[in-house]
Design a protein around this nucleic acid. Sequence first.
DNA 1: GTACTTCTGTGGTCTGTCCACAGTGGGCTA
DNA 2: TAGCCCACTGTGGACAGACCACAGAAGTAC
Lengths: 232, 232
Amino acid sequence: MRTHERVLARIETGLSAGKWSIGERLPAERALAEELGVSRPSVREAIRILEAMGIVRTAVGSGPSAGATLIDRPAAGLGAAVRLHVASGTLPVSDVVRTRVLLEAGAVRDAAARVTDDAALARVRAHVEAMAAPDLDVTAFVEHDQDFHIELVRLGGNQLVEAILSGMRAAVASYVVTGADAVEAWPRTAARLCAEHRAIVDAVARHDGAEAERLMREHIEGFYREAGLGEH
Amino acid sequence: MRTHERVLARIETGLSAGKWSIGERLPAERALAEELGVSRPSVREAIRILEAMGIVRTAVGSGPSAGATLIDRPAAGLGAAVRLHVASGTLPVSDVVRTRVLLEAGAVRDAAARVTDDAALARVRAHVEAMAAPDLDVTAFVEHDQDFHIELVRLGGNQLVEAILSGMRAAVASYVVTGADAVEAWPRTAARLCAEHRAIVDAVARHDGAEAERLMREHIEGFYREAGLGEH
DNA sequence: GTACTTCTGTGGTCTGTCCACAGTGGGCTA
DNA sequence: TAGCCCACTGTGGACAGACCACAGAAGTAC
């Protein structure tokens, strides 16, 4: 086993044992190196991995905010992994779409069952209205679209689902932009997408999980079909 | 932007541009460092992250197999991320279970629609029978159980779903073992789980996607409830 | 009491060195 | 000539030591 893997294993053991909690700091790199009898670069490599996985955040300087602080960002690591694999071209778009359908349909159903926070719903609606602004270019439209979907999924309350979908965000935005360019009458389609978003939010607001799920499924698959993205 | 992040960005750009393909090697660490005008430790940190994400595999020595080779293991990175977050206690088991339900239910539905390969089905059945062996200890039972689930999901044909669930494998195995210990009459429960597995495979074999989906959902949620894992 | 300066601890980075490893090819031996 | 052995070479793995930038904390001057 390589040195940085030993360091990683030690830290992971500490995490499992509850040695540190969110917001606390790991020992300094130099201290950790001495404690484990390894060099600082080896410790750094382990910390880099933890950072890439969204387990810690590092900061220079002194004081409470400096050093490697435990954070809670599952999306970071999952997102990076999905992004890199899509970049390397091994994941087909149809798989990304199907995965979205499964996870978002479930998330929206959960959201309908548990949402009670009107402020959160208002935030989601704000993203829909931002999309509906006239003369919005496609890139900005898609950004708002993604914000809407992620925010809605967050209402479902499942951190893992949220993390996976956040990770897929860049990959999704990429195919949606491609698809939007391929659509004949984009303004009409954009308006329809906004209307579908509103319908989904409304279903969630009245706690109609089954309908919200059905609408979300149709929303994602409908655009995929219309844009002809599956015909490659 | 930190040095290793610049290196990572450059490599990612190369990946997106198709500069290297699966099985090929990245330039040597020293060459990469000189090319980008950075030090070798910075390059190493970037490669460590790629390795942790399942993008490359590194090997010492010389010859074609040495160096950082591009691989295609989405499961590795996703798995590590899920494992570490479960270890740090930020991902509740209930989220893992719910995510399984959504993805596996969908995957098994897809599998029912497309499976034509009897050999693949036979492989899945073999895992069920391995689980049914008498006097199997819990750890071995769970390993076969995981093999079964992953192999079945693979029949669905979605690489991303398979990667995510493969990544969750260790986390799932961990909670199942915990749950098995908590079950009163384990042998009876184990037999029931095997029977449920058989029923799912049968539904897939006769292309009854809706039933396979329902059974899978009930299978995963049923054990979770019976083992009392949601009562923390 | 306030504002400035210095100190201290932190990660960020680089240089240089040595080691272990594995394939390659030349040279030696039978 | 055929086969084997061994040095060579390129690779990642690891370490020591140094210096820098940064940000808060402590001390000092006014």
